[in-house]
Design a protein around this nucleic acid. Structure first.
Lengths: 209, 209
DNA sequence: GTACAGACTGAACCGTCATTCAGTAAGTAT
DNA sequence: ATACTTACTGAATGACGGTTCAGTCTGTAC
């Protein structure tokens, strides 16, 4: 078998662990499955992570960091506050089988009884909200948005998205994905005192002339 | 030991199961603990419910029915559409240790991999949304509210509440409980085209003269 | 090439439950 | 009283799966 540096192996294990969490759930996922999928022995996982609990915590942390990096990349690619904001929300919103979302719902539940996980989630939420609040502030500074408190508005907007996402996960037929999109646009327009047309689609506002 | 009718015993077991779920989580809760708490043998639980999976599904169903009854009772006690709506939302909102909420977050997570649970949750969500939509319609008929689609508005309002509740569960210090209340009032006022003062507090609108 | 560190194996171990089952006893009908 | 149903016991069972550990192997340093 191939040998790898501890660092590289750990990252590899974390990735496979996240896959297994998505497939089998955070608590019901088995170390043996992670090992099998990597064509490696169960002992190796414990060798690198000590305990399953530890593995899960590090996997979540890893996923959180990955998501935050991705969020920043997504936002960097848009060129105005309005498009940046919508790009972030569109990425956050559940799409397809909502791969990413399942992990966070599992995590919410597990975090109810695990302080370490709870900390990871709280930090993630804070970062997310701050990123969104920053774009809003940017829009306010540019005279595009009007808002009482950017951080509060960011909290409400992302909370609405969380709530709608969960509904869709639990009950696929509750509403359509583009209804969700439309509601989100309406909410943002209201929160930020701007025109829906400025948010409606990436194209619409990236060609303002 | 006391013998009871199967019916009575089942209800008793379901109640204790819900307590154990709140304390230890849906998946990690043990049948032995339910039995011990009831001063009864583990075999009894299986005797009445066949399997743990079955027990959990029935417990959730039981909780859902309990909550719906409670919701209707809460709403019946208020006397105008505005107070009825806010009474429902206030009861739904997480308070104190958010006892009720933990179960539903666990359930969301478990439902990702279990069709039976998923069905229970989907039905519960539908019922909830319909109840809220009905009050909104009532308000519209009375000329108090103005809204595009009552069911959609109800979905958005309850989704926002779900999202905010989860945030509070995960990160207690994210915001204050009365901030949540305030945001909710603002959202409802906007959705329904009414005055915040009509919703602000139960007293305010139950003494309209 | 020799030595060493540290990645890795995989079989065995062991605690933890859900579930089984043979038996007991409390109600009920006759 | 007698027979019968059905709630209930509690010790045994068996599967599952995280963790251990003694030993192997591989890359690297000298």
């Amino acid at each position: 078998m191939k040998r790898k540096s501890a660092q590289a192996r750990r990252v590899e294990v974390l990735g496979e662990t996240l896959k297994q969490i998505r497939e089998h759930g955070m608590l019901t996922m088995r170390i043996a499955d992670v090992a099998t999928a990597m064509d490696v022995s169960p002992g190796l996982i414990i060798y690198h992570f000590e305990t399953k609990e530890n593995l899960l915590a590090e996997a979540l942390q890893h996923a959180a960091e990955r998501d935050l990096l991705k969020l920043r990349r997504v936002m960097r690619e848009a060129d105005s506050p309005a498009t940046r904001l919508m790009a972030a929300l569109d990425w956050y919103a559940p799409t397809g089988q909502a791969r990413g979302w399942q992990i966070w719902v599992d995590a919410w539940s597990a975090a109810l009884r695990d302080k370490a996980l709870s900390k990871v989630l709280a930090d993630l939420q804070d970062q997310w909200t701050k990123e969104i609040a920053a774009v809003i502030d940017e829009g306010v500074a540019a005279g595009l948005f009007r808002v009482g408190d950017a951080h509060d508005a960011a909290t409400r907007i992302t909370a609405l998205l969380d709530g709608l996402a969960v509904r869709l996960l639990v009950h696929k037929g509750a509403f359509k994905r583009d209804e969700l999109r439309g509601w989100l646009v309406g909410q943002v327009a209201w929160e930020l005192g701007t025109e829906e047309s400025a948010l409606r689609s990436p194209e619409a506002s990236s060609r303002p002339s």
